[in-house]
Every structure is written in C-alpha cells, then in structure tokens.
C-alpha cells in the first residue's frame, strides 16, 4: 500500500501540490490525470524522492519514505520512468538495464577489481535478469546497441525495462506515451496492462485520457495542485468538477486542445 498523506510542495508562491492525499493498494493500477500544471510530475518526484515535500508524508506499507534519498527508496521498491528519455547514452542497451538492478545488488570498487566468485555469480545473474527485462519489453534484439541509437519509442521501453530490473513494488510512469506513434502507444498500453496483471502496483500519469480510462482501476484528478476527484474511471469522467477543470471557461473549444473530449463525451 502506497500512502500519500496531505503532501504539499510550493515553488515560490505557487503551490505545485497542496494537501494531496492518495491511497494506492497493492496491485492497483492508478491513473493520475489533470490539465497542464496540475502538479502530476511534482507528485511523482515527491514519491520517488527527487523533491522533498514542505509538509505531509509518503509511506510504503506504513514505512515512511520521507527521510530516504531516491537511491534508498529504490531499494524499498519505488521505481520511476521519467517523462522523456533519461538514459545512459554512453552505455549499451543491456548495460542500461543492468544499472536498473543496482538497488538489489552489492559490490564496490574492491569487488570490481578482485571479482570473487560471489561477484561473478551476481554479475551473471544481473545480466540474465536484464536480458529477461529486455525480452519483456521486446528489446532483446537491441541488447548490444548503444542506448543513444534507439528511436524514441524504444528508448521509452528501455526505461521501463531498466525500472523492471529493480523488481519494484511500485512503478511510477510519467507520461510514458507522449511522443509515441499510434502503434507504439498500443504496444505500451499492452505492456502496462501485462505488468499490472502480474501484480505490480502502477501509478500512471498520462495526457492521453483515453489510455488512462481504459487501463486504470481508479483515477485521481489533480487541478492546480489539488485533488479534485478520485474514483473509478466512470465516476471521474462524469464528475462535473473534472469536466469544468478540463473544459475551463472556454467550453468545448478548449477541449479540442486538451484531449478532454474523452472526458466530456463519456
């Protein structure tokens, strides 16, 4: 159970998140939607530990994460796939995924030079795990390519594979489908659904509201840093506050630009 308890974060005078609370039970696929600037990415960064909240608390199974830096949260099972492609461009695709297992493995400089049997075994296991993760996202053929040479859609899937190598309990996906072509989008949707079917708890931020409503068990809607609705896709998409937030004062016209037509027409 991931618990976000009245978390607030402001930059200057502007609240990016204000008293945001959310409870995500194990195995749930939770969608997080909201107009631009609603504070979705800020929320993810607060959960992953790249930002510290001004107040409030984030905990996993009752264990507070607040004092942990991001790499320690990774050890406790929090993984994040960033918006855009944050890869390690100087490394191969396989090596990128192997870094993802860092939180679960051991060994520093001395182990690197001396290479005792335990270290060799761990290296072999890490490699095999990385290969399985690559196969999972359909990138096994590209294992030895430089990561920077992949097209965007594959880079996004590589990021997912890297997150999987940490065998996380909670996976945060920040706009994984942005910039992808229709075919790539369908593949990604299927992948997210499969991962969740295997029991992984997933939080999904996505502009494509159609994708979120088709995938998520529940959806939390943020607007101007605050939670304005929380419920099943059917509940949320008929909530008048959500429709107003998406349509704004501009009415139907604005909907054309925000993708809110999915919401409005349900």
């Amino acid at each position: 159970m991931l618990t976000i308890d009245r978390v607030s974060k402001h930059f200057g005078g502007v609240y990016a998140n204000r008293d945001v609370s959310m409870e995500v039970p194990d195995g749930e696929l939770r969608g997080v939607i909201g107009p631009n600037g609603a504070g979705k990415s800020t929320l993810f960064n607060l959960v992953a530990g790249h930002l510290r909240p001004d107040s409030g608390s984030v905990s996993l199974d009752g264990r507070p994460l607040d004092r942990m830096p991001p790499h320690v949260r990774a050890r406790h099972g929090v993984a994040i796939v960033f918006q855009g492609a944050r890869l390690f461009p100087g490394m191969t695709v396989l090596e990128n995924v192997m870094v993802g297992a860092h939180a679960r493995t051991h060994g520093g400089l001395v182990a690197a030079v001396v290479r005792p049997p335990s270290q060799r075994r761990q290296e072999r296991e890490t490699r095999e795990l990385a290969e399985r993760c690559l196969a999972r996202v359909g990138l096994e053929a590209a294992a030895q390519q430089p990561a920077a040479a992949l097209p965007l859609g594959q880079q996004r899937r590589l990021q997912v594979a890297r997150a999987l190598a940490g065998q996380p309990r909670v996976l945060l996906l920040d706009e994984p489908a942005s910039g992808l072509r229709a075919g790539e989008r369908t593949d990604l949707t299927d992948l997210v659904r499969e991962l969740n079917a295997d029991g992984m708890t997933i939080l999904l931020v996505e502009h494509d509201v159609g994708m979120v409503t088709s995938l998520a068990h529940r959806i939390t809607v943020l607007d101007l840093g605050e939670v304005i609705a929380d419920g099943t896709p059917a509940e949320v998409t008929t909530d008048p506050r959500v429709i107003t937030a998406y349509l704004g004062a501009g009415g139907q016209h604005a909907a054309q630009h925000t993708g809110a037509q999915h919401v409005a027409h349900r």
Partner: peptide, 11 residues
C-alpha cells in the same frame, strides 16, 4: 548520462 535516473535506479 543522467544523475537523476542513476539515483532512481538505486545508485
């Protein structure tokens, strides 16, 4: 490559 991504991976 990316300190943020490395950190999230547990580095």
């Amino acid at each position: 490559g990316s300190e943020t991504a490395a950190e999230s991976a547990g580095v």
